[in-house]
Design a protein around this nucleic acid. Structure first.
Length: 277
DNA sequence: AGTTGTGTTGAAGA
DNA sequence: ATCTTCAACACAAC
C-alpha cells in the first residue's frame, strides 16, 4: 500500500500539521512495533523533544527531533498515521487498529494505526542515519535520478526480470507492487522481460514513465486500493486511473485485450499481453 | 466455515 | 554470495 506517492503525501501533510510541535507522551498497546530499544527507553527518548523537520527516504518517514534524534516510521503494508485531536485526560484513539499514539502539545496527536501490525517505529540518532539508510536506493523523483543512472543500475542485473528490479528498494527506492505494474504498462514493457533483453528505447521509455507515473500519483495523493489513507483518513485519487493493477479480466484501456494476472516472486502482477511486449 | 490472497521487508533456507 | 521462500498479522473475498 504505502509506496512513494502515499508516503510523500503523508509527509507533506504532516509538515503542515505537526511541524514544531512538542512530544508530551507516548502510548502503545503493541510494543512489538518498537524497534531498537525497550518501551520505557523509547518513551524517555521521545518525551519533551520537538519535531523540527519531516522527511521521506524511500518508504521511510523521518520525524527529525531535537537533540539529534530521528523517529523513523515504516508503514509496511497497512500502516497509517492519523492526525487527530485528543480529548483531554483520556487515551482517545479514533479506531480499534490504532496501536500507538504520539501525544503532542495543543491536544494534537498522531495515531499509528496498523491493521496487520507489520509497521515499525524506531528512534535513531542523526549519526547513524546514513548507516541505516545506506542500502536504500536512489529517489526516483530526485534530479540525480537520470537515464544514465538507471542504465548504470541495470548493468549488473541483466538476468533479472524488470519488475523485480523496479521493486528492489536497494536500487530505486519507493516503487512497490502497484506502481511497478502501472509503470510497466505505461512503458509498454512486459513485467517478466529480462533486463538484458530491453532495448535502449525501452529503457528510455521506462525512465520517462517512472517519473511521470510517480509524479502524477503524488499529485493525486496516492492510491487507495484498499487500506491506504492519508493523515486525515482520506483516500487518494490514483485508484480511479489505474490501468492494469487489480484489473484482471477487464479490458485494456488502450487496446481492449483482457488484462492478465501472473505471479512473480509471490506478488500479483498485472499486464496487457498485447500492449506490453 | 475453512482456505486464499493482500500493498512490505527481514530473516531463514537453498 | 545470491536468489527464493517464509513469517510477522488481520481481514475480506471466495
Amino acid at each position: 500500500m504505502p509506496e512513494l506517492p502515499e508516503v510523500q503525501t503523508i509527509v507533506n501533510d504532516l509538515r503542515k500539521e505537526i511541524s514544531g510541535e512538542k512530544i508530551t507522551g507516548f502510548w502503545t498497546d503493541w510494543k512489538k512495533s518498537i524497534k531498537g530499544c525497550q518501551l520505557a527507553e523509547f518513551k524517555a527518548k521521545l518525551n519533551g523533544e520537538k519535531i523540527i523537520a519531516i522527511e521521506r527516504i524511500g518508504k521511510n518517514i523521518l520525524l527529525r527531533l531535537t537533540h539529534q534524534k530521528i523517529l523513523l516510521v515504516h508503514l509496511r503494508m497497512t500502516g497509517k498515521l492519523l492526525f487527530t485531536r485528543r480529548v483531554p485526560n483520556i487515551t482517545s484513539k479514533t479506531d480499534r487498529h490504532t496501536h500507538s499514539i504520539l501525544l503532542l502539545n495543543k491536544n494534537k496527536q498522531l495515531e499509528f494505526n496498523d491493521i496487520r501490525k507489520f509497521g515499525t517505529l524506531e528512534i535513531i540518532s542523526t549519526d547513524t542515519l546514513a548507516e541505516k539508510m545506506q542500502k536504500i536506493g536512489i529517489n526516483p523523483l530526485s534530479p540525480a535520478f537520470t537515464l544514465k543512472k538507471l542504465n548504470l543500475s541495470l548493468l549488473s542485473k541483466k538476468n533479472k526480470a524488470i519488475k523485480t528490479l523496479l521493486m528492489n528498494q536497494d536500487v530505486i527506492s519507493g516503487i512497490g507492487n502497484i506502481y511497478a505494474s502501472e509503470i510497466l504498462f505505461a512503458a509498454k514493457i512486459a513485467p517478466q522481460r529480462s533486463i538484458g533483453s530491453l532495448t535502449a528505447e525501452e529503457i528510455a521509455e521506462l525512465f520517462k514513465n517512472i517519473k511521470t507515473i510517480l509524479k502524477k500519483a503524488v499529485k493525486l495523493r496516492g492510491t487507495s486500493f484498499s487500506d491506504y489513507r492519508d493523515t486525515k483518513n482520506k483516500k487518494g485519487g490514483f485508484q480511479e486511473i489505474l490501468k492494469v493493477y487489480g484489473k484482471t479480466g477487464k479490458k485494456c484501456p488502450a487496446c481492449g485485450t483482457i488484462i492478465e494476472k501472473i505471479t512473480m516472486g509471490q506478488r500479483s502482477t498485472f499486464y496487457c499481453p498485447r500492449c506490453q511486449k
